[in-house]
Structures are given as structure tokens and as C-alpha cells.
Amino acid sequence: MAATSTPLAGSGPSRSARSFIERLRSGDQVAHAITLAAAASILLLTGLLVYELFIHSSETRAKFGWSFLFTQTWDPVADEYGALPFIYGTLVSSALALLIGIPLGVGAAIFLAELAPPKISDALTFLIELLAAVPSVIYGLLGIFVLVPLLRIVEPAIRSVLGWTPLFQGPFYGVSLFSAGVVLSVMIVPFIISISREVIRAVPADQREAALALGATRWEATWDVVIPYAKSGILGSIFLALARSLGETMAVTMVIGNDPKIKASLFAPGYSIAAVIANEFTEATGDIYTSALIELGLVLFGLTIVINALARALVATGNRGGNA
């Protein structure tokens, strides 16, 4: 440190005073202060974000209390606001996305980490990670003009197999919770793949070899030993993907149907939190309407924060290695 130029014999206080001045002159103290201010401003900014959401939703929080979360009415004309249809649509479309996305993503991650030759694996991973960079409005565009017409074609086939369940009944217009789930699944697969591939690769080779040495087939070694070893990391990638899909706005807005009703059928149009904010915010006349939308934003914020925190904790334990 800078203090080394001071003789060791120097008494305590004067030594630290000298070193402080020296450090000031050399700029260390200044640089420390400036960067510290930047780092602190991130905390302030985030705090301000929460504060703003909280303050600007005070009207509806005062008027409806917790019942905001559990009522189904969304009637701007009568100034009656309930978040349940949006929470429902957000959760159901994301759940559907995971249902499709997990097998696809984990399957591909296994292939890329365990089976593909390294060069091919890297090239394919490069392509797949580019998918994560495609703007969501582009997914929405393809959702409206490609996926929705496509789903109209395959809808009778789905109905003939699964039509007996309440999930696939009623008329199908193309835009629906189902369509939103499919678009979201395409969007989250790259996240699941790229993180899961890393954690699977990080599994020590001797785990795999121990299974093979007992006579396991390649698949058995992967499924029985490697995947359980990597499970918390994979779970983390899934939670991260879930957080993404909960907050995803544009692609969902464009295909979900924008109808604030809770219907059992996935073929029925629905609505998500992000979508209703995107669609109605600029038209929101009246403070209560805006306040209701901001409170929805607060709900979405809380939801994604919890999921994200869980995801990061899981990925962190996954990186630390084996845990039974």
C-alpha cells in the first residue's frame, strides 16, 4: 500500500494521516469514492423502482386491499379492478411453456453436453444462443402470422386426441392461452439449453465413468447419474426461464387474445399481467385505472423477483457441485 513509504517507527495517528493524504493525492480515494457512488446508485435506483411502484399503486391498494389479487372483475368503466384473470393467464401460459420447454431444452442440453462432438456442440450452441437474442417483438410477429394460422390447422388433431379433457374444449380462434404458451416455450428453450449444458458439462467425468464401469448404457449413465448430479443447476435454469416467461410482454400480448376471463380451456383467449399493462396503460383514464395497472406491475415484480432469487440460489448450489 501507499503507506509503505512512511517509516515504520512513525506513530500511529500521523502515519495514517500521511497515508490518507498520499492516497488522496494518488487518486485512490477519489476513484474509490466515484466507483462506490456508481455502485450505490444501483441500489438507490432499484430501491426507487420499488418505491415508485408502491407509491403509485397506493390508491388501488387502499381501495381493494388484498382482494385485488383474488377478484375476477376487470371493469374500467365501473372502476372495479381484480387481478386474478391476469395472474391466472400469466401462470397458465408460463406453465404450458415449461411443460413444452423443459423436455426440449433439457433433452437438447444432454445431447450438446454428453453426445455431440465438441465442435458440433459449440456450433449448435452458438446458433441456439443467438435465438435468445431475437427480440421478443419478432417472436410476436411470427406468432401472429405463422404460429396462429398453423395452430388453426393442427387444432382439430389436438382436439381429437385431447378434446375429452376440459383443457381443450370450446371454440378456437387462434389467439389463446395455448398459443401464448407455445410462443413462450420457443423463447425459453435457449435459456434452459445454454445453462443446463454448462452444468451438465461441469459434472465430474468420474461420475459418468463409475456408472459406465458398472455396465450402464450411455443413456443410463446420463439419466441415472449425471442428471441427478446436475439437478439443482438444471432446476435453476428452469426457474430462470420461468422468470423470463412470466415477465415476457410483447410476444404474449400479440397472441394471447387479450380477454380478461378465467376459462378452463387452453383454447380460450386469456390475458397476462404484462399484456394488460402493455395494452391498456396509455389508454388508462383516471387515476384508479392507472393505479390498478401499476399494482399489477408490482405483483409481476414480486413474482419474478422470488422466482429469480430461487433460480440463482439453485444455480449457485449447482455450481458448488454434488449434493444428494
Partner: peptide
């Protein structure tokens, strides 16, 4: 073959089970 010829490794490597 691997059932008939077992192996124990340098570092103990129990499965996470």
C-alpha cells in the same frame, strides 16, 4: 464386460444418492 470387470476410481465417486 463391465459387469464382469468392475472398477474403482482414484477419487471416491459415490453417486448423489
Amino acid at each position: 464386460l463391465r459387469r464382469r470387470v468392475g472398477m474403482v476410481f482414484q477419487r471416491s465417486n459415490p453417486f448423489p444418492k
